[in-house]
Design a protein around this nucleic acid. Sequence first.
DNA 1: AACACCTGCTAACTTTCCTTGGCATGTGCA
DNA 2: TGCACATGCCAAGGAAAGTTAGCAGGTGTT
Lengths: 115, 115
Amino acid sequence: MSAASPPTGDDLVRMLATLANPHRLRVVAALARERAYVSGLARQLGISRALLQVHLRKLAAAGLVTARMELSEDGKAMNYYEVEPFVLTLTPAVIATAVETLTVPDAGEQPEARS
Amino acid sequence: MSAASPPTGDDLVRMLATLANPHRLRVVAALARERAYVSGLARQLGISRALLQVHLRKLAAAGLVTARMELSEDGKAMNYYEVEPFVLTLTPAVIATAVETLTVPDAGEQPEARS
DNA sequence: AACACCTGCTAACTTTCCTTGGCATGTGCA
DNA sequence: TGCACATGCCAAGGAAAGTTAGCAGGTGTT
C-alpha cells in the first residue's frame, strides 16, 4: 500500500534504483493513464517484449506495479499491469532516517552501528 | 533551489540514479546532520577517500550537495560539503509529467511524441 | 628532513545492468 | 495447416557503474 511513510533503507534504495531508468519511467507513466498488457505496451513504447518484461519485473519487485492475468474475449491469455498509487517524498531528513535501517553489503542482518 | 516542482525527465533520472546508492544515501544522511570535509567524512563513513570523492562528485552533479573550499585555522585546505535542502515527491502522476520531457538515447533534442 | 594531515587525479579491475535474439508454449481464425 | 497474437524464459555480448591502489601536490609541526 503506497509508501507515504519512509520504508526501510534497503527498500528505498530498491525503489530509487528501479525508478532511475528512462524505460521504467515511461512504463510507469503509460500505466498511470491506463493499465495495459505486455505485448500491447511493448508496441506502444516501441521496445521489445523481452526488454519490457525485464523492466516490468523490476517494477513489480519494487512494488510499484502489479500484474494480473486475464483471459481476453477470444481466449487469449493477457497479463495486465497497473501502477500502484505510491507516494514517496524525498528530503535529506527522510533519507537520514531511512539510512538507519540500511543493511551492510555482505555482513549479517543486525545493523545498529554508530561511531 | 531544491526541487519542489518536477524537474525535466532527464533531471529526474539523474537525481534518482544518484540517490539509488547506499553510500550516497549515507553521505546525504551524514551531511544532513552536519557539513563535513572529504577526509573527515571518509573516516566517519569508513570508506576510502577516492571512493567518497566519486560519490560526492555525483551528488554535486545532481545538485544534491554543494562544495566549498575553506582554509582551516592551521592553513590546511579543507573542502566542505553540505546538503542542498531538496524536496522531491514521487508519484505516478509526477512521473507521467516528467516523462514528457525525457530525451531519447542518441537522437536530437526535440521529443514531442505520442501514439 | 620526516611525518601527519589536507587536496586532487588516473588507470585498471570487477561487478552489475541493459539489451538483443532465439526458442518454446498456447489460443483463435482463414 | 499456417498465420497472427498472446505468454514466458535463457544465453550472451556490450555498456555503465562501483571500487581499489597508486601517484602527485600542498601546509604545518616535531
